[in-house]
Amino acid sequence: MQDLSLYSSEKIYYSYKLAGLGSRFIGFFLDTLILIGIYAVLAGFGAAVFGILGDVSQTVTFITIAVLIIFYLLVSFGYFIFFETIWNGQTPGKKAAGLRVVRKTGEAVTFSSILVRNLMRIVDALPAGNFVGIAAISFSRNHQRVGDMVADTVVIRDDQTGQPILFEAGDTDPELAEKIRPRLFMVDEKDFSLIREFFTRMPYMKPYHAAGVAEKIAGGLASKLEFQPGEIKSPIVFLKTVGALFREK
């Protein structure tokens, strides 16, 4: 995954994770499904008018069709513009796929950027099957489609922020800690980031999966630290203890 690094106005260096073709496709696909749903409702509404009123006069028929045509145009462009405006760069599909549109300078999208990037969908859809857009996202530096380039926007991953991992006193095992302390020099930065990564993701994992993964990591680490196979009783406590000790170092 590629990053877009920026300086905030506080002159702090931070970065966004840019969304790639895959996640953007998922977002677009979901939005398309919703749009098809809306079109189906529109068509159903038309059918209902004819169905309920039965043999309606021509005037009613054509007024209905006229209204439907206008709604079609409004919906197909308005959907993206409306949601990106009220949800700060997200549509329902983007939200589900964990994406957000921001200005390339890191600010919230503006209404005019939203207009530009969505009207330019016409160009990105050329010549068929969104070919231009897909090519542009694949090859441009910041994974932008033509509409993004013109509007100066990027699509970023807007995942859960998560929590910083704290190894609290209650979670660690003082007895075990005493055993680990002399061997702590064998733990390196890589092991620690593995532990940290695991605990970052643990809240989002199913419990039995988490237990399995914890056992694997703890098993590897334990043999590296020359523990006997039966010596580690709870893998999660072991990992937390190692993490806390390493941080203290």
């Binding site: 905030s8 970065s15 966004y16 957000r100 600010e107 919230a108 005019s112 922020t161 991992i165 620690f192």
Partner: peptide
């Protein structure tokens, strides 16, 4: 954190990035 506590930097970066995209805007509808 970027200088001293690399293990928290990722979390803070996400938080700051997320906040930045909400708090800084040049124009609204």
């Amino acid at each position: 954190a970027q200088g001293n506590f690399p293990d928290v930097a990722d979390y803070l970066n996400r938080l700051v990035a997320r906040a930045h995209s909400h708090l800084y805007r040049t124009e609204s509808f």
